[in-house]
């Protein structure tokens, strides 16, 4: 038990919370914005898979992480616009489009990886892990002054560039939603599309912007997965983070700050599970900890919301 505490009070523990939270936070922001625009994008997982694959491939072929990163963003946006085309123009149910993207994100990426790289499968599934070296990964940033502060420096400094931008994006997204006319339009379309249309807002355009934004965030998340968190893409490597983000979005009440805290809560829970396993807790008990905490928090959140909603009625 003392071991557990000392492991938990190490800077490494707090450092890992941010690292684990970052990709979930990206996907959560994606989920928040589309939800504000009045629909759900459950294809985040698949979008992240595509971005992760193409980011790592572009990084390898160009020998530049920056190119890889930009391609990851581009692929995220491109794929999401395609989703939008199917959902808004061809009027496919957006949930079905999301499922399709998720399925393609699992099998289709493997297919593309094999076609593009000619890597075949002897034992392991084809992956780009053999192609990506440290210098093709997104760099870690040491923050000049903060790094020298004891403890805090080791928690806050030295993260991947994309970990910092995740929290930055959280602030920017919040500003976008509440301080710009675009944000107002997105929320208006989400609240009542017909009302928004009646005052001259192009609902279609706003929906496209919202889904493209979710693709952009998925691009960030995918690039983080394959070019920072792990070196290179391998099949199903996003491993459900795109789905956890949907829960984080709901848990955070659909707001950026709430979403950030839910992502951090999930990161904390995951880090906690890992520390528990470091002192010998059975992995079958340790690994569900993040999910259990998510479910419990969702339940508490739901309960609080229901009881809040009931109060005015009682007063009346």
């Amino acid at each position: 038990m003392s071991n557990l505490l000392s492991n938990m009070l190490s800077p490494g523990f707090f450092f890992s919370i941010f690292r684990i939270s970052a990709p979930i936070l990206y996907a959560t922001l994606a989920a928040i914005v589309v939800e504000k625009a009045g629909f759900a994008n459950i294809g985040l997982e698949g979008l992240m898979m595509f971005s992760a694959l193409f980011g790592s491939l572009a990084s390898y072929y160009s020998q530049s992480w920056l190119v890889g990163f930009l391609v990851a963003l581009l692929v995220g946006v491109g794929m999401s616009l395609l989703m939008g085309f199917f959902a808004f123009q061809l009027e496919t149910d957006i949930i079905l489009v999301g499922i399709a993207v998720n399925l393609m994100g699992s099998g289709g990426t493997l297919f593309l990886c094999k076609i593009i790289t000619d890597i075949t499968e002897g034992k392991a599934m084809a992956s780009t892990t053999g192609l990506i070296t440290s210098k093709l990964c997104i760099p870690n940033i040491n923050i000049p002054v903060i790094r020298s502060i004891p403890f805090i420096g080791r928690v806050l400094s030295g993260h991947s560039l994309l970990t910092y931008t995740a929290f930055l994006m959280c602030i920017l997204t919040s500003i976008m939603l509440y301080r710009t006319s675009l944000g107002l339009n997105i929320r208006a379309v989400g609240e009542n599309a017909n009302a928004a249309a009646s005052v001259g807002v192009s609902v279609l355009k706003i929906k496209y912007i919202a889904i493209a934004f979710s693709g952009l965030m998925s691009g960030f998340g995918g690039a983080f997965m394959s070019m920072s968190y792990a070196q290179g893409w391998s099949q199903d490597m996003v491993a459900g983070r795109g789905f956890i983000a949907l829960a984080a979005q709901a848990m955070g009440g659909g707001e950026c700050l709430g979403g950030m805290f839910s992502s951090l809560l999930f990161g904390f829970a995951q880090a906690l599970g890992i520390k528990f396993s470091s002192v010998g807790l059975d992995s079958n008990l340790a690994s569900p900890i993040p999910y259990a905490i998510t479910i419990i928090s969702l339940a508490i959140f739901g309960f609080v919301r229901i009881s809040r909603a009931k109060k005015p009625k009682v007063a009346a």
Partner: peptide
């Protein structure tokens, strides 16, 4: 699972550091 490289890395870091 056999796919989550990131979580394997987290476990590895914990094994090495802790």
């Amino acid at each position: 699972d056999y796919v989550d490289t990131a979580i394997a890395k987290e476990y590895g870091l914990s094994m090495i550091n802790d």
